[in-house]
Computed example of a mutant assay.
Amino acid sequence: MRRQFLAVVGVALSALVMSVPAAAAPKAKPQAAQSAGVYKVAIDPGVSLADAAESMRLRANALNLKLVAELPLSKQVESITSQPQRTVTIFQFCDALTAKDLIDVNIDFAVYMPCRIALIEDAKGQGWLVMMDVNVDAIAKEKRVPQVLKDRINTVRQSLIDIMQAGAKGEL
């Protein structure tokens, strides 16, 4: 029951967290890009996908975001097809208290939780970290989210960007 609650909370928080306007994101470096609802960062050359994943886990822990799920999709496909696959792993992070408060405002936020960051190896072997990036101001206004909670959402989103940047650089 607790795992289900955390999963629901994480979905709601991730959608709202990912909806902070692009202007709130740090200045994009050449390896970072934003496009229609997506924020992505290229993993630096010399940083393995395993090192990027470990860096994200460590940074999330340091920022008090809990890793509530890790889905090795490419390994699941390999087991089904017996064919090697490019890496695709979905990490789900959560700030349970903020997520609970969002759900208290409106249960519709449950569809956005937990906050997801995908680790993806493209066809050329380049690693990417990708997350949803939607307009939090519009959602917060529509759902009547108090400013103090909106500020917490912005803090979580900034933490997710920090996690992605640490992963891309292989930082601990």
Rank of each mutant, 00 (worst) to 15 (best):
L16M: 14
R86N: 10
D101A: 06
T155Q: 08
T81C: 03
I117K: 03
S19D: 15
E70I: 09
V134M: 12
I163F: 05
L129I: 12
Q85H: 05
A123I: 04
L102E: 01
F93H: 05
P30E: 11
A42M: 08
A7K: 12
V41E: 13
T89F: 02
I161W: 04
D44L: 10
L6P: 03
I107F: 06
L6T: 08
A52H: 04
A123R: 02
L16D: 03
D151I: 02
G170F: 01
S74V: 01
A23E: 15
E171H: 10
T155C: 01
I120G: 05
K40I: 00
V130K: 12
K124V: 02
D151H: 05
Y39Q: 04
L67I: 09
A50R: 07
A138G: 07
F5M: 11
E54P: 02
M131T: 15
I43E: 06
M131P: 05
L160F: 03
P84H: 01
I43N: 04
Y112P: 00
Q31S: 13
K124S: 07
S82N: 15
K27P: 06
Q92G: 15
A60I: 02
G125K: 01
D44T: 09
R157L: 09
V17N: 11
I139M: 14
I120E: 11
